[in-house]
């Protein structure tokens, strides 16, 4: 299976997952609870539950992969083929950094809440 076919499948799969994950996330943080109540104690409570830690971790991974793939495609459409590499490098770097940051924070906070 070529890289491009894999990317096609990944975008659809993460998209499907995100339809659930993002809706749930937005509903909980804005609709079910008012956004002003989502303070540090809300986060502490949320990340003491394994379900939400897994949910948020999956949300982080899927959203970054899905979003980066979309921006990648947009770069392909608007940037001439010879000038794409720097854009792609920045995109990959930013996405990787954000994932690392988010994952570390999530794991550390979950461990603190559990311990």
């Amino acid at each position: 299976m070529s890289g491009r076919t894999l990317a096609y499948l990944v975008v659809r799969l993460t998209g499907l997952l995100l339809a659930v994950l993002v809706t749930g996330h937005f509903a909980v943080t804005h609709i079910v609870h008012d956004v002003s109540t989502t303070d540090a104690s809300f986060v502490a409570h949320r990340w003491s539950s394994v379900l939400w830690v897994v949910w948020d971790g999956l949300l982080l991974a899927c959203a970054l992969v899905h979003g980066a793939s979309g921006v990648w495609v947009a770069v392909d459409d608007y940037v001439d083929v010879r000038r794409r590499r720097p854009w792609r490098s920045v995109l990959v770097a930013v996405t990787t950094l954000l994932f690392a940051l988010g994952a570390v924070v999530l794991v550390v906070s979950a461990a603190r809440s559990a311990g």
Partner: peptide, 10 residues
């Protein structure tokens, strides 16, 4: 399947 193929269709 290539760089200029079906993946460019939106």
């Amino acid at each position: 399947d290539g760089a200029g193929g079906v993946d460019r269709c939106h």
